[in-house]
């Protein structure tokens, strides 16, 4: 399977901020992650992350992140406009 790179913004709420979610994800899924940007306060965390791996694995990792309450968006954010 071909490797590919995908870029996302991850948004954490106050619960997610204190949990090592990205570390947990990397233990579960075979994806390389590279943090490019981050802004974390007590209430909210925003992290810019590049994933490298097989498309299906990245998809599964994103699904898992969402299942633990992380909001995952492509770096383009609002591709759908009014």
């Amino acid at each position: 399977m071909a490797q590919e790179k995908q870029r996302f913004w991850l948004n954490f709420d106050s619960k997610g901020v204190t949990r090592p979610i990205i570390w947990e994800m990397s233990k579960k899924y075979d994806v390389v992650f590279n943090i490019r940007n981050s802004s974390v306060t007590e209430e909210v965390g925003i992290i810019g992350l590049e994933f490298e791996g097989e498309r299906e694995t990245i998809k599964a990792a994103v699904k898992w992140l969402e299942s633990v309450g992380v909001r995952v968006e492509p770096v383009e954010i609002n591709t759908i406009e009014g």
């Binding site: 913004w9 948004n11 306060t41 909210v44 925003i46 909001r71 968006e73 609002n78 406009e81 009014g82």
Partner: peptide
């Protein structure tokens, strides 16, 4: 008083052209 934008996953307004929950 912050510049961190909290996403709003489910916008609910008649102003649909402004309903972007994660503003770039």
């Amino acid at each position: 008083g912050t510049d961190l934008i909290k996403p709003q996953p489910k916008p609910n307004t008649i102003a649909k052209s402004l309903a972007i929950g994660t503003p770039a």
